[in-house]
Design a protein around this nucleic acid. Sequence first.
DNA 1: ACAAATTACTTTATGCTTAAAATAATTCGG
DNA 2: CCGAATTATTTTAAGCATAAAGTAATTTGT
Lengths: 168, 168
Amino acid sequence: MALAKESTPVSAKNGADQEAEYRAQTRVWLRLLACTTLIEGELRRRFREEFDFTMPRFDVLAQLDREPSGLVLGELPKRLMVSAGNLTPIVDRLVEDGYITRTPSNLDRRVQIVCMTVEGRKAFRRMAKSHGAWLAELLADFPADRFDGLIGELDELKGAVKDALQKP
Amino acid sequence: MALAKESTPVSAKNGADQEAEYRAQTRVWLRLLACTTLIEGELRRRFREEFDFTMPRFDVLAQLDREPSGLVLGELPKRLMVSAGNLTPIVDRLVEDGYITRTPSNLDRRVQIVCMTVEGRKAFRRMAKSHGAWLAELLADFPADRFDGLIGELDELKGAVKDALQKP
DNA sequence: ACAAATTACTTTATGCTTAAAATAATTCGG
DNA sequence: CCGAATTATTTTAAGCATAAAGTAATTTGT
């Protein structure tokens, strides 16, 4: 199957424009990756040092924090955009460590409900507070009045990528 | 540094402003992460399906492609912003598979020089072409005339985070 | 009713990632 | 010159990530 750019272009661009657009796209991707890697690495390091915790574990707790009555286990992979198999050992350990409970549903024995414990909620709130402060510290030098603009651009970018993924 | 109005220190914002800024920062971070995860996941999937290759391996080749005479192995972790230990098995396999060579330096036997092979270079160029096309496809719906603005914002963000990491 | 398909979840194999400890070669200081 | 520090790299332990195969419970089609 032919590559998209070689089949009929929506707006016929000349070679130079095409090249320029390729470069711009690559640059966006590399900057995006660099920013994310930089921030993620620092957050991970601090989670580890301060709380002996990991971000994937924190992400699970963050989802459950908004669900007082718990969540169907199968909702987690969807919300967190990770594979189901990935979550199994993470949930296992959160249960082991007493942050959450996992109880089989009586109506459908395939289904399990995960729910934060009181201690889990307490620990989460403590960590979430630090997480916010760390983020504020890392982003402190970025002009506050340009956050909204950047959020808008990123939202649009995300939408564009999602649309592109929908197509085929 | 900009002066705050009414001799109020920059760090002393009122509660509502503080909260709003926290939320904006969190949103930027979540959007950034979502965009990166989305694109990275798709690129990874395609690398795997089309070339039975991984992005970390591609990244190593990309660095070596610009260095006809090879690179000191220790440069790779720095340029790719990953740990040195991480690279060892990746480089191992690239050597095994014939994409690159690893030769100890005669001047300093701790040091090794890694260099792309002819076949490695050929394979890289083939993959790089697809990589560019995939990116173009994924970002096609984002208005081309706003790439430069986004690149600028991300550059500034990256700089701000780097500065923040420098401080302590 | 019951075989086949579907759904929820787990397991396995493979690979990336880090931090920390280990190894080995080189340089430095006295 | 020789022990100590430094530097380059590897190894190890722990955890995250996926894809693909497996298991078990439920639903569907006939």
